[in-house]
Amino acid sequence: MKITSFDDANVATATLSEPTEHCNVAPGGDRAKELTIDDIGLTVRTSNNLRGAGILRIEQLLACSRDELSRIEGMGRTRLDDIESVLRELGLELQC
Results as ranks from 00 to 15, higher is better:
1 M>N: 03
1 M>W: 02
1 M>S: 14
2 K>S: 08
3 I>R: 11
4 T>L: 10
5 S>D: 10
5 S>G: 05
6 F>A: 02
7 D>W: 12
8 D>C: 05
9 A>I: 08
10 N>H: 14
11 V>W: 11
11 V>N: 13
12 A>N: 03
14 A>I: 15
14 A>W: 01
14 A>F: 04
15 T>S: 14
15 T>G: 05
16 L>M: 10
19 P>W: 01
19 P>I: 04
19 P>C: 06
22 H>A: 12
22 H>T: 09
23 C>Q: 01
24 N>V: 15
24 N>T: 14
25 V>P: 00
27 P>W: 06
28 G>A: 03
30 D>Q: 12
30 D>Y: 14
33 K>H: 06
33 K>E: 10
34 E>H: 05
35 L>T: 03
35 L>M: 12
35 L>Q: 08
36 T>C: 09
38 D>N: 02
40 I>Y: 02
41 G>Q: 08
42 L>M: 04
42 L>R: 00
42 L>K: 01
43 T>Q: 09
43 T>F: 14
44 V>L: 12
44 V>E: 04
45 R>D: 12
47 S>E: 07
47 S>T: 11
47 S>G: 08
48 N>P: 00
48 N>T: 12
49 N>H: 12
50 L>R: 01
51 R>M: 09
51 R>G: 02
51 R>A: 13
52 G>A: 15
53 A>F: 05
53 A>C: 05
55 I>W: 01
55 I>D: 03
55 I>N: 00
56 L>S: 09
56 L>C: 08
56 L>V: 11
58 I>N: 00
58 I>D: 00
58 I>L: 08
60 Q>M: 09
60 Q>W: 01
63 A>F: 02
63 A>S: 15
64 C>F: 09
65 S>P: 01
65 S>R: 02
66 R>G: 11
67 D>V: 15
68 E>L: 10
68 E>I: 10
68 E>D: 14
68 E>F: 11
69 L>G: 01
70 S>N: 05
70 S>G: 05
70 S>F: 07
70 S>M: 13
74 G>L: 06
74 G>C: 08
74 G>N: 15
74 G>T: 11
74 G>M: 09
75 M>V: 11
75 M>A: 06
75 M>R: 00
75 M>G: 03
76 G>N: 05
76 G>L: 05
77 R>G: 03
78 T>L: 13
78 T>A: 13
79 R>T: 08
79 R>Q: 13
79 R>A: 11
80 L>Y: 04
84 E>T: 02
84 E>P: 01
84 E>V: 05
85 S>R: 12
86 V>I: 15
86 V>R: 15
86 V>F: 07
86 V>E: 07
87 L>N: 04
89 E>K: 14
90 L>I: 00
90 L>G: 00
90 L>R: 00
91 G>M: 06
91 G>H: 11
91 G>V: 12
91 G>P: 02
91 G>T: 10
91 G>E: 02
93 E>Q: 14
94 L>W: 06
94 L>A: 06
95 Q>M: 13
95 Q>A: 13
95 Q>Y: 06
